[in-house]
Nucleic acid binder design. Structure first.
Lengths: 194, 194
DNA sequence: AGCACCATGTAAGTGGTTACATGATTCC
DNA sequence: GGAATCATGTAACCACTTACATGGTGCT
């Protein structure tokens, strides 16, 4: 842990939207920012404890009529300040590591079908995700019809981001598959000529 | 270490392109797949040792006329087989975590300038990267003029991917900045009306 | 009664970076 | 002779995931 700024502020940021339990934080992250962020329970619960210890959040535990173990965490004034400071700080350029792209890059060292399969899998995945993002987009539009909150506006920006990336990715997959086919056809005819 | 499949095969894949030293692997990764992959020396050297121990690569050390410590590693027949097997295996959907997007998502909890700054920084970064990708694209086109190797073809696919993503990202940044401006203008006029 | 989901937490392991230590070679 | 780059390696640390343990609550 020590100075695990990312998870810490991701969780604090979620509490900034509304008070939540650890379990809710997980679900909420999955639904809203799952496209580019994730947190595991193994991270969430210790961080929540840490946030309380640092005075950045308060725990209100023991809501009757529900599971008595359930604890709802709320961001504190200090927490809001800490979050704002972190938000103002320039984001580190994060190291993305795409296993799929790596396998496509090395595709020359496998048979041509391998690359094709990776791209097809990617394409299927993207189309599935696009459907999900469209649903989120619709839900957001409906919720913020009339007056759009600050949070809704910013959520909308990230949804637009996801959508744009997915559309571009789908386009790349389709183009790449055509290139693969074309290359295979040329390769085949070359062999015939020998 | 144990079963660090990703780094292991990223490095083995580089050796599959041509024999290299640890240092060259690092540079080569940065130049060709730096857009979506990275390896640190702290990872490369132990993995190279491991690859030799497992019989997936051979070390030819002690080239006179150059630094005598320099060791060039070469993929073995067994290594090629292991690489092909790994390549054929479906890629896990990797967890991307974008700190910048996270900060934009939480932007409603900071002043509007914060979000704007993050997007502007992103835009600058993307434009810079696009220039770099274009250079790689040109170099690749020149190198593979006439006959294009399998490796060149697959490298081209990943470069096209990078380019497409960057163009989409730049577009998103520009649109988002306009949305921010528009929202700020509306917000200001609202306050004037109060 | 049983399943799905809500709910919290810990321990072990993983996959990786960063910082450090050390030094050779090349080019100006 | 000094800077840049080539070159290899280790140790400490870090953030995070996975698997495990445990059990409540609500619906059918």
């Amino acid at each position: 842990m020590t100075e695990n700024s990312n998870s810490k502020f991701a969780i604090l940021g979620m509490l900034g939207i509304r008070p939540m339990s650890g379990y809710e934080i997980k679900k909420s992250i999955e639904r809203s920012i799952g496209f580019f962020w994730s947190e595991s329970f193994g991270q969430i619960y210790p961080v929540l404890k840490q946030l309380v210890a640092e005075g950045l959040a308060n725990a209100q535990n023991g809501d009757e009529s529900r599971d008595s173990r359930r604890k709802v965490y709320e961001i504190s004034t200090q927490g809001e300040k800490a979050l704002r400071e972190w938000l103002a700080f320039s984001a580190r350029t994060n190291l993305i590591r795409s296993e799929a792209l790596l396998k496509i890059f090395f595709g020359g060292q496998a048979d041509p079908e391998t690359t094709r399969k990776h791209i097809e899998r990617e394409l299927t995945e993207c189309r599935r995700k696009l459907v999900a993002v469209n649903k989120v987009e619709q839900a957001l539009a409906q919720r913020s019809a009339g007056r759009q909150t600050e949070n809704d506006f910013h959520h909308g920006l990230t949804v637009a981001y996801g959508k744009k990336m997915l559309i571009a990715l789908i386009d790349w997959c389709e183009t790449s598959l055509r290139l693969c086919s074309w290359r295979e056809a040329v390769g085949a005819s070359k062999e015939e000529l020998l």
